[in-house]
Amino acid sequence: MKWTRGMIGVVLLLMSAFSAEAAMPQQEAVSQFVLGNQAYKEGAYEKAIEEYRAILEGDRENGHLYYNLANAYFKNRQLGYSILNYERARRLMPRDSDLKFNLAYAESLVRKTAQPEPAGFVSEMISGHVNFYTLDEMFLMTTVLVVLLGAVFLMSRFLKWPRVMKTVSRSVLIILILVYSIGLILKVRVTADQAVIVSNTPANFEPLETATMRFELFEGMKVKVLRYKDGWVKVERDDGLLGWVTQTSLEEI
């Protein structure tokens, strides 16, 4: 069930691809970026945010932009938006050390409701693998490996490889394909519908102002979006608790 959901996620991402509108020219985006940096250096963080956002509104993005925007939000004491944009940057440049540092620091400032359980070695390894690549890289890796498997299969036929060589090369490739395709599916599953709380909010039992509060969500926390309904969002917290929050209190990554 979960796997099929993952696959559907991949397909949806593929379909959401082509929306052609005139995007901001590359040159303009660069100058906007430089303006934002200047404002940041002068300490005018709100202005920097504005400049950076203009690029996004011009339908342009990249990792550096999200990173700088997140920095500006951080300095402007908007922890939620800061983490949101760090996360967006992470999807584009997951191995950037500055980003990792800043995100970790920003997350350390998020109010914790419960001490997270220390991750086991295996889950640590899996999340390390999943987080090391961008979705694109993971996807490319999987396809390249599949193609490579085909090529190796052909080559082994044409060149009449010995049986051992055939078996070893194929099983290595198949294991790698499994590793990457499972990683890919996990990544799609994890990243799909992730949202960051941008303002402290109660999570209610029902999508009503008058409903009983179940738990509290703090700025910067990450939740999973399950459903939208009339300006309310059903979210799932890390520990599996569900609740309804207003749509304005979170933003999807």
Binding site: L13, A23, R60, E61, L135
Partner: peptide, 25 residues
């Protein structure tokens, strides 16, 4: 000290929002 690392100076190459390899023709 505890603070965030400074912003990136180089803009890098911008691409369209949501433009990824896995959704390019």
């Amino acid at each position: 000290g505890e603070d965030i690392v400074f912003i990136k100076d180089s803009p890098g190459k911008f691409h369209r929002l949501g433009q990824r390899m896995y959704n390019s023709v």
